[in-house]
């Protein structure tokens, strides 16, 4: 598989270097959010605001009022858990162009409860004027900045850091669902790091003749309802949503709301944290523990189809998705 080391670090420099109105804001997590190289190369547009998130958010509201575009970098949890009132009153109400770059989404940290942003999408989605984006691979991390920058109003982005897998070869496209495979049996709708799992599940299930429409969502708010409904038209047996987040208020809830309002008569299984906190451990362990991995998706498919495939962990470990073709046109990826 193809991985990219610290894609955000280079992407932010490329994006921001010739944009004097873009300011890089840090809350004492500069290296951890991969903006240390930007700081060293463009110190005049780097502002360290310390461990003081409430003040930082309001200050950025003021900077945006003056025509600047502050990109705030910190761990996602510290944005909305520590400073939600400031996000609402100093930024969102006024529709200011502040970009909230949230690192360590969901279970992508062994930091446990204090570091795992598992209800961020639910919170941000409920705030008027807020746009919510989530990256699922290195390409999306590299290209989400232009998308976020093009939006009039505040944007929250779930950013992946470190060694990030590359799944897609086309840039982040605002409010466009990526179709990764076509099939009439089941629709799998995934976001963030769970898309890699969904792609593996699709591949392993294809060998059993199970035909799956696999959709990757990277714009959670607004949500492209029309495109989703189009894709669900020919699905026979059910829908699975999978997300690196609690099933309350995130992707699973979004799809639930749409199928309820539109009378889509299909069973739905929501994979994600089931109204529980997680704890500190490895990503692989946690994804299995909280059932958001490939095996969980396979089991959900079996349940919807009322079959048993006997696919085991070894089968899943042997799946390669680096050809990025998964039964579909590469343009869709």
């Amino acid at each position: 598989m193809n991985y990219e080391e610290k894609p955000y670090s280079k992407a932010f420099i490329d994006f921001a270097k010739d944009k004097p109105e873009v300011l890089c804001i840090s809350a004492d997590l500069t290296g951890s959010c991969e903006i240390d190289k930007f700081r060293d190369q463009y110190p005049d547009r780097f502002f360290s605001m310390g461990m003081a998130e409430q003040n930082m958010i309001s200050v950025c509201g003021g900077l945006a009022l003056e025509g600047f575009k502050p990109f705030i970098h910190t761990f996602a949890v510290f944005l909305y858990r520590r400073a939600i009132d400031q996000i609402i009153c100093s930024i969102a109400y006024s529709n200011r162009n502040v970009r909230l770059m949230g690192f360590l989404p969901g279970l992508t940290t062994p930091g446990g409860i204090t570091h795992q942003a598992i209800e961020d999408i639910a919170v941000f989605r409920s705030i008027p004027n807020m746009t919510v984006l989530e990256t699922g691979d290195a390409t999306e991390v590299e290209t989400v900045l232009e998308t976020a920058d093009s939006i009039n109003g505040p944007v929250y982005v779930r950013v992946l850091r470190g060694n990030v897998i590359r799944l897609f070869n086309t840039p982040f496209k605002f409010n466009q669902i990526r179709k990764l495979s076509s099939g009439e049996d089941i629709a799998i709708i995934s976001s963030g790091i769970t898309t890699e799992e969904a792609m593996k599940a699709v591949k392993v299930l294809n060998d059993f003749g199970i035909k799956i429409t696999s959709l990757h969502v990277s714009t959670l708010k607004p949500f492209n309802k029309k495109q989703l409904l189009e894709e669900l038209k020919n699905i026979r047996s059910g829908i699975i949503t999978v997300e690196n987040h609690t099933i309350i208020g995130g992707l699973g809830s979004i799809v639930s709301e749409i199928i309820a309002e539109e009378n889509i008569n299909l069973p739905l299984i929501r994979l994600g944290l089931k109204d529980t906190f997680a704890h500190g451990a490895s990503l692989k362990y946690l994804m299995n523990e909280y059932q958001i991995n490939t095996m969980a998706i396979v089991k959900a498919c079996e349940k919807l189809l009322d079959i048993s495939t006997n696919i085991d962990n070894e089968d899943i470990d042997n799946v390669e998705i680096n050809d990025m073709t998964v039964n579909s046109n590469p343009e869709d990826l």
Partner: peptide, 17 residues
């Protein structure tokens, strides 16, 4: 508590400009 921080952001922005 938010007015002072927002004013500080405006002041910082005006300094930059």
């Amino acid at each position: 508590g938010q007015g002072l921080s927002q004013a500080a952001g405006i002041a910082l922005g005006r300094k930059l400009k």
